[in-house]
Every structure is written in structure tokens, then in C-alpha cells.
Computed example of a mutant assay.
Amino acid sequence: MAQAPVKSGVSVLLQGDPSALPAALRGLINNAQFSDVSFLVGRQRQVVHAHRCILMCRCKVFQTMFSRQSSQEMSVPFVLADMQPEVFLAVIEFIYTNSVTLNGQTALEVLTAAVEYGLTDLRKLCVDFISRTLTVDMACEALQAAVTYGQNDLRQRCLVFIERHTMEIIKTQSFRELSDLGIVSILQSDQLTIDEVPLIQAVREWAYVSSVVLDVPVSVVAQDAVRELRLVLLSPDELTTLERENAKDDLIPEMQIAQAWKFHALKKVSDSHPHHFHRRKGTLAREHHHYLDPPSK
């Protein structure tokens, strides 16, 4: 189809090869030539060279940072002691080229940096990469980052993965290092592929680790998490065993255990906490379960 002729005096925007500019700018990444700003990154204070005009036009955080500098401070390097050089270079790569090279070792830290620097498109690239490369060992670490930085899309993708691999997930170190908000987000799910008995034991192990790290009693550190445990799913014998274990650390409030015994006595689902009576996807069948809601699918 023939193009209409351009009228004389009319300006037209013409697009060249869209890959040419990023390719050219890639050559300026950490290039000392014509650089007018430098950063000392990480514990080893690795020098990273950059160009103010590029950083400022692409990132408001850098724009604010540079605008606060006096003329005398222009030659003083910025110190970024808490960031790994490879993470900062990934941020610089994105700023210069609108693309980023990620790997499983640095993706979560690049995500953190993207949030801190307000780089929305980099954040989206990190979330997509992390979601596609989740493993059992890193799933809880990714979930924790999502919870900490309010990344709901990543949080949902992590939960789906954790729901599918719950038995393996609870054995990982990153599960034991979750915050209370992180573990609560897991325990609220109906789709966990695990029975309540090993899940309670996993929460107990998590609580002991958190108690040592935070230097607070087990019952205090776990007070929000244990509210999400579904004790009514346990048989009377299992409840009796739980009471004996609980006498050692008071992990679960006595009132919560009493509510489970009340259900066994009355065979009636409470209206106050209906989700406590939902069977999870991995809940093993017990004789009293026919009094509960239908199992999760």
C-alpha cells in the first residue's frame, strides 16, 4: 500500500533502528571516559562510574540525590556500602539500556533496589523473572521480599508455588527465617498440600528460630501465626498429644485448644472463625471431618 505524500512544511517523527541507542549506551556502563559521577559500592568499595545526565533523566531518586549536592561535593563519590556491586551494575544497566541481565543469585536484591529507586519497569522485569525461576529453596525468600515491599503480584505467584510444594518448603531454612507476616500469609491458604499435624510442627520449629533471633518468648513471637492453625482438623488423640507438647512452650493459647475440644463435644462449626473449619487441600481424612465444610479442591 502506497504511503500518502508528506505535505511540505509538515514535521514527521521518523524512527530509526530502536536497538541502536541502547547498544551505544551499553558501552558507557561503568566507563570512566566522560564520567562525571562515581560510586563506591559494597564492602570492598568497588568503583562504578556513571553519567549524571543519564541517571537524572531516568530516575527521580538520582535526580534528587544530585540536586542536593553543592558544587564542592560534585567530585566526591557516593558510598553505597549495603549494595552488592553486581546488583548496582544491574540497576545501571537498566537505566542506560532499558534492559537488565538477571540471575537467581541477584534477582531478589535487584528487585529490592528497583523498589528503592522507583524503577517500576525494572521491578516488573524482576517480578516476572523471579516468578518464572522459583525453586523450593528460594520460594520463601521471594515471598518475604514480596511481603516486605508490598509486591502483591509476586506474593500471589509465590503462594501458588508454595501451595504446590508445601511439604518440601517447610523443611527449608528460608521457611524458618520468615517474618510473622510472611508465615501468616502462608497459613491462611486453603490450598496447602500438607496435613495439619506436620504443619503445626513446622510452625513450632519456625517459632523457636524466631524466638532466638528476636530474643522474645515463643508464645509472643508466634501469637499471630498460631491463630491460623486449624486445630479442629485434629483427632482427639492428636489434640491430646498437642496439649502435652504445648505444655512445654505455651506455643498455642489454651483457649484455642479449648475451642477445638468444644467442636469435638458439640460437632458444630463456629460462626466466629469459619475458616478454621476448612480442610486444606492436603488435609488427611479423619472420622470427625464429615461435620466440617467440604474439603478444599
Rank of each mutant, 00 (worst) to 15 (best):
Q3W: 05
P5I: 08
V6M: 08
G9W: 03
V12Y: 08
L13R: 14
Q15S: 14
P18V: 05
L25Y: 12
L25H: 01
L28K: 06
I29C: 03
A32I: 02
F34H: 12
S35T: 01
D36V: 06
V37Q: 01
V37L: 08
F39N: 06
R43I: 02
R43Y: 04
V47C: 08
C57W: 01
R58C: 12
C59S: 14
K60S: 14
K60L: 15
F62A: 11
R68C: 14
Q69M: 14
Q69W: 01
E73I: 04
M74H: 03
S75T: 09
V79E: 13
L80S: 07
D82I: 02
M83S: 08
P85E: 03
L89N: 05
A90K: 04
V91A: 13
I95W: 02
N98F: 04
N103V: 04
N103M: 04
T106H: 04
T106F: 00
V110Y: 01
T112N: 05
G118Q: 09
L122I: 00
K124Y: 07
C126L: 03
C126K: 01
R132W: 05
T133R: 13
V136P: 03
D137G: 10
D137F: 02
E141R: 13
E141K: 12
E141H: 02
Q144T: 02
Q144N: 04
A145N: 01
A146M: 01
T148R: 11
D153G: 10
Q156I: 08
Q156K: 14
V160N: 02
F161Q: 02
R164T: 00
M167I: 03
I170G: 08
T172R: 05
F175P: 06
F175G: 06
R176H: 12
L178T: 01
S179G: 12
S179P: 01
D180F: 00
D180T: 11
I183W: 05
V184F: 03
I186P: 05
L187N: 06
D190E: 12
D190Q: 13
L192T: 04
T193I: 01
T193S: 14
I194K: 05
D195K: 07
P198L: 09
L199A: 09
I200V: 11
I200H: 01
V203R: 05
W206N: 08
Y208K: 15
L214G: 02
L214K: 15
D215C: 14
P217K: 09
V221N: 06
Q223H: 13
Q223N: 14
R227E: 15
R227S: 11
L229M: 12
L229H: 10
L229S: 12
P236K: 09
L242T: 04
R244S: 12
N246Q: 07
A247F: 02
D249R: 06
I252R: 12
I252A: 09
P253A: 11
A258N: 13
A260S: 12
W261Q: 10
W261F: 15
K262G: 13
K267S: 15
V269P: 06
S270L: 02
S270N: 11
S270M: 08
D271T: 14
S272H: 12
H273R: 15
P274S: 09
H275L: 13
H275I: 07
H276Q: 15
R279F: 00
G282Y: 00
L284W: 01
A285R: 13
A285K: 13
L292N: 07
P294K: 13
P294R: 12
K297G: 06
